[in-house]
Design a protein around this nucleic acid. Structure first.
Lengths: 211, 211
DNA sequence: TAGAAACCATACCGATGAGTATTATGCAAG
DNA sequence: CTTGCATAATACTCATCGGTATGGTTTCTA
């Protein structure tokens, strides 16, 4: 280690970097839990630090402000949704199958990032304008891609939709809202829920039952 | 007026009562606008008072706390949704027609109470526990009634749903989320949107296109 | 092992905003 | 005109919390 010149380190993940990343990660997790339970404005950084067994300056060594912590949290939910979208679009299958993949992947992304999605939805007004704008662009991007997918399905004769734009917003809402009611210890597993919801969405798109 | 005994006044709306009600109403409107634009915690009562051309004690003469103002706002959205639900259920028509009425009425309720619904969704953590509980009961009531309607449609052979419970939550989310994207000056009128969304919901329930 | 540098805790500041005590105003009745 | 009551404004208190200056401690380098 001692032989490695400092100037090279930027390109490699050193132990130090990993430790720093771990601390950031733990801080985000602790903050997300409290922001989710109590709300952003009602959560003090003191409280976040306390649940981690550290103090406030620890947090300020890794985040420049409370708002940056929020931005980090909010970015996660949106990113996960976009990853699911891009994965579905990249598959070389019919629009119907893409929509099924998207529905399942999107719901899974929302539910496995439940806290982050909830915080984004509730607290977007507390984001710095630049972060808000950045995330808005990502969300519009998601909607745009979904409209295009629905339109492609209509053009292929697989979907029957009068207004793909409204349909896209409806699908987006149906899935996004799942953070409100989902309970990890509920009656249905995440897998089973994904099956249910994706068939509801296919039905909504006008795909005959049973594919 | 002078002839009317004060003890009788409780049962009639006097001018005085109407004035009081008007002041409360204007306060709620002003607060809702600011809570919607900036968020509850980031809005000072000073700011609310300023937009009304009064000062803080004016508000405290009509509301015992900032949280009571919030509770008033939040109650409106839920109540409007429940009214739409009960109206649909009371109609003596088939489950399919009830679901169509509900979809249209629910969406209309959400969109014409857009601010109130948005504030309820974002700020529920700031409600007093008692108010939170009261509103939670109303929301569960709504969901319960929707599940029952869907089940009735399935039993009547009109709907084709594997899991009415998940379907109810999906419909609830699809419509509730509309507060996020709806713009009163958008491409479609509220009427046209209600048509679109209700046909999407009917399709989701497995009702053949064109009724 | 000396020395330095990153790191984090203690203790603090300054601003902000909910709620209130007191004072002023205006309206109604006699 | 005057007395009294309700209403709202001025001006204040007090607690909270985001952010920081400073000093001690650990860890890495040489």
């Amino acid at each position: 280690m001692a032989l490695i010149d400092r100037s090279d380190m930027a390109e490699f993940a050193t132990i130090r970097d990993e430790v720093t990343a771990l601390k950031r990660e733990r801080t985000v997790e602790a903050a997300a839990q409290l922001f989710y339970d109590r709300g952003y404005e009602k959560t003090t950084l003191e409280a976040v630090a306390e649940t981690m067994g550290v103090t406030k300056p620890f947090i300020y060594n890794h985040f420049k402000s409370k708002a940056e912590l929020l931005a980090d949290i909010c970015t996660r939910g949106v990113s996960a949704s976009l990853v699911a979208m891009d994965a579905a679009l990249a598959a070389e299958v019919s629009p119907t199958e893409k929509l099924r993949m998207l529905s399942r992947g999107f719901l899974t992304a929302v539910l496995s990032n439940q806290r982050y999605i909830a915080i984004l939805t509730r607290e977007e007004k507390s984001l710095e304008p630049a972060d808000f704008e950045r995330l808005s662009v990502l969300r519009r991007d998601f909607d745009r891609k979904l409209v295009a997918l629905l339109q492609a399905g209509v053009d292929a004769g697989e979907f029957h939709l009068n207004d793909p734009y409204v349909a896209a917003l409806s699908i987006g809402g149906l899935v996004s809202w799942a953070y409100v009611w989902y309970r990890p210890d509920g009656r249905l597993s995440l897998e089973a829920l994904a099956d249910e919801v994706s068939s509801l969405i296919l039905a909504m798109a006008g795909v005959p039952a049973g594919q």
